[in-house]
């Protein structure tokens, strides 16, 4: 554990809490892609199966349980509790276009050809593209509430901090997880355009912003 990794995890937690509290307080999930949230719940589910097989640390276990619980709570709020506000007409990204290649790749490129490892790899690859329905929705509607942008900012920050963490771990302990690093870098690139717009538009007071 290093400071970059911890800050990354905290940033991830903040992102998830921002989204959950936004939906809860406004009693609305307008502008939120339910599909992206289902994909994230699937990411956590398939990655954290090792909760049952290997213990790493109390921190690790607690965070996994928290992420799982929060992601399922978010999906519940969107599709059950506040489903009347769910903007399904604009949440039209075809997730099969993500799932099919991701499933295929996880069978081709993994650390060992076992169900657990293939599911772990699937979760890593899926996480890198799971935000695409959300970004697609923002592009389609032309704008997002500033709170949604804060959510995306912290999600992107989490990814950027993980890259710094990997650089740190590579130099201090020789750690290099190729699958995680390559897909993590790809994932972070998706946020670059958003980051630029976030800084130039949201932080300079316009509140709302649109993606080109």
């Amino acid at each position: 554990m290093n400071i970059f990794r911890l800050a990354g995890d905290m940033s991830h937690l903040v992102a998830i809490l921002i989204l959950l509290l936004k939906i809860w307080r406004s009693r609305s999930c307008a502008g939120i892609s339910g599909k992206s949230q289902v994909l994230f719940a699937l990411v956590f589910t398939t990655r954290y199966l090792d909760l049952f097989t290997s213990f790493i640390s109390a921190y690790n276990t607690v965070m996994k349980v928290v992420f799982l619980a929060l992601s399922y709570a978010t999906v519940y709020l969107i599709y059950m509790r506040f489903r009347n506000s769910y903007d399904s007409e604009n949440d039209t990204f075809r997730v099969e276009f993500l799932l099919v290649p991701v499933i295929g790749l996880s069978f081709l490129e993994n650390y060992s050809f076992t169900p657990m490892e293939i599911l772990w790899t699937f979760s890593i690859f899926l996480e890198s593209v799971a935000i695409m329905p959300q970004l697609f929705m923002i592009t389609k509607t032309g704008e997002a509430e500033s709170i949604t942008n804060h959510y995306l900012f912290f999600l992107g920050l989490y990814r950027a901090l993980y890259i710094v963490n990997w650089v740190w771990r590579y130099h201090t302990e020789g750690f290099f997880d190729q699958i995680a690093v390559v897909s993590g870098v790809v994932q972070t690139i998706f946020y670059c355009d958003f980051f630029y717009l976030y800084v130039t538009r949201v932080l300079r007071g316009r509140g709302k912003m649109s993606l080109p």
């Binding site: 990655r47 790493i56 690790n60 963490n165 750690f175 997880d177 190729q178």
Partner: peptide
């Protein structure tokens, strides 16, 4: 990479 059994990152 032989970290196949222990993924210690979240």
């Amino acid at each position: 990479a032989d970290e196949a059994s222990a993924h210690d990152e979240l």
